[in-house]
Design a protein around this nucleic acid. Structure first.
Length: 268
DNA sequence: GCACATGTTCTCGG
DNA sequence: CCCGAGAACATGTG
């Protein structure tokens, strides 16, 4: 469920309690098939590791340690990564105990998320297939990513290899703000439209980060609280409700297997 | 039971 | 190789 703004919110909050803290103990509590890396390997490599960096690219988090190797996290659809101990409800998979007494818990109901230990040198490889980070994507980069593509522009925005970090909510919201129909062929956008879209993507994501992300169902910030940006959604989840700009009912169609919301009057 | 869910990845046909 | 449709993954909610 978490897209770039939600993951960035989690990153910043985790960093506050985790930075420079060694991991004293690692507990795995979920079903073993959840883990990309077996729990025993995680424990062996993480014990005593002191966090120095926590970087994000698109929706992926990468923890860097004083020693070798790094730890990759992806929250999938329902992943939560919080700075407190959670009640054991069968969905908590990983618990990290830090030297400062704090506890980090990774919970994921649907188990689409992942936790993967990357041995030294392998850290870059997992991010190689991702396009430029959406928060700072330039007009040129987005234009290049969309050029020549005959797929719908919304489908292109969801492709992490073209631009990383945009998911179903922010794709619809960005296209509404840029006044572009989601069904338009990506390669047929004009240069002006590409620039407008890139600009709206950057501003939208930055604004959502300020609000702590969007909570629809499961997402929580690392402090356990819900995000606030869902209150500012203009099309996502507003099917049949009046467009906030022109009152035309918001339309919902399926594109690339995903719900797609837009204003048939404001977007062209 | 049915529809749907903030994600990723694969298969099958064209 | 590009593209789209559909399904799969696992679980929950309305």
């Amino acid at each position: 469920m978490p897209e770039l703004p939600e993951v960035e919110t989690v990153r910043k909050q985790l960093l506050r309690v985790w930075k420079n803290q060694p991991i004293l103990a690692v507990e795995s509590t979920g079903p073993s098939y959840f883990f990309v890396t077996p729990p025993a390997t995680l424990k062996k490599n993480l014990k005593g590791q002191k966090l120095v960096t926590l970087i994000r690219h698109g929706k992926t988090l990468l923890a860097g340690f004083e020693g070798d190797g790094s730890l990759l996290f992806h929250l999938g659809m329902t992943g939560q990564f919080v700075t407190q101990a959670l009640k054991q409800d069968g969905h908590v998979h990983l618990i990290l105990h830090l030297k400062n007494g704090r506890t980090l818990s990774f919970r994921d109901v649907r188990k689409f998320g992942k936790v993967e230990w990357l041995p030294p040198g392998k850290s870059g490889a997992r991010l190689d297939h991702l396009g430029p980070d959406a928060l700072s994507v330039t007009d040129q980069e987005l234009g290049q990513a969309l050029a020549q593509r005959r797929i719908a522009v919304k489908t292109a925005l969801l492709n992490q290899a073209l631009v990383a970090g945009i998911g179903n909510i922010y794709a619809d919201e960005a296209l509404f703000r840029a006044k572009i129909l989601p069904t338009r062929s990506a390669g047929k956008l004009t240069q002006v439209e590409c620039s407008r879209l890139a600009d709206e993507v950057r501003r939208l994501l930055a604004q959502a980060i300020k609000m702590g992300g969007s909570t629809i169902n499961d997402y929580v910030q690392s402090n356990g609280k819900k995000g606030g940006f869902q209150e500012l959604h203009q099309v996502y989840g507003r099917t049949t409700l009046p467009c906030l700009s022109c009152r035309t009912p918001i339309t919902r169609v399926i594109l690339g297997g995903r719900s797609t919301h837009f204003c048939p009057s404001c977007q062209a």
